[in-house]
Design a protein around this nucleic acid. Structure first.
Lengths: 155, 155
DNA sequence: AGGGATACCATGGGCTTTCATGGAATTTCA
DNA sequence: TGAAATTCCATGAAAGCCCATGGTATCCCT
């Protein structure tokens, strides 16, 4: 199932050492898109979850900012660059496909125990299941899928 | 492995001897970009913090700012440029990755105790946590990240 | 098509290396 | 010769690395 896009729903565990397996299909998408074994994780803007990209997408954004603000070192550029890069973490995964979640991301995503990966095309989302089920903005059908996943694991 | 730009948020301590560890991932980025174990630190133009570059990027920034002031022969000319350049320091870090902050930078950045490194793409910023939380120009989400970091350290 | 073998994946544990930080030792210069 | 600055070593904690395991899906062969 190799593809250019992130799709599907997966649930993996955050262990005591804050390790988390990136689903194999997502890893393959990441490597297809960027050629590197690296994920960029950042807090989402409008939802209590994290967003994941391949590093190529991030570099594209970086290039765009650099071009748009060429010659401009005013506050606008500073803010954008700061917000975009400071809140993002660049994480490489190991031979088993696991990343280590830094404390900030654990905190912002409220991740402990099970973590949900939701494919979303050019990126994916990473949710604490409880927050997803409690969110008003999530499609009920998706919630059903999640509930089924949790039940299959005795949660 | 960690890319060629600065990203992420880190908090290290300024000790009694004014020593400060540059985060390992930033050191790696610096060496990737410039091939030297050297940081340039200067006061930021639009924010109460310091900015850090690898030497290569500093030269680019230097050229752009100098060009901006090129046609200005009024009385105000040079004050800003003087501040930016005169107080810029080229600091090499030691085997443990530590730089020693000169008094002028300590004062300009109001740094004592914890210091925040914010990745911003081609450069990074160095903040006193209190000043960042008090600044109106900083994105609220970024403040959340910083608060989470401080809480994790019992501040 | 069935059933056995195989490859892959998520997860756990232990071991090693690296990192941030503190302190001591040594040098430098007034 | 004393104070300040710089270099070196020590340490606890965290991050990363390697191998092991159990379970599931996949392949293959007759």
């Amino acid at each position: 199932m190799r593809g250019r896009f992130f799709s599907g729903t997966y649930m993996n565990q955050v262990d005591a050492k804050h390790r988390l397996s990136v689903p194999a299909t997502f890893r393959e998408t990441i490597e297809t898109r960027s050629g590197s074994r690296t994920v960029v994780l950042a807090p989402a803007e409008h939802a209590p979850c994290l967003v994941g990209y391949d590093i190529g997408h991030f570099e594209a954004v970086h290039a765009e900012i650099a071009a748009r603000f060429a010659g401009d070192f005013g506050p606008g550029r500073g803010n954008l660059a700061r917000t975009l890069f400071a809140s993002a973490e660049t994480l490489g995964y190991d031979d088993n496909g696991r990343i280590i979640l830094p404390p900030i991301l654990l905190e912002l995503g409220e991740l402990s125990g099970p973590a949900l990966f939701l494919g979303a095309g050019d990126y994916f989302e990473l949710w604490a299941p409880g927050l997803l089920l409690a969110s008003d903005d999530v499609d009920p059908r998706l919630k059903r899928v999640v509930r089924a996943l949790m039940q299959a694991r005795g949660l």
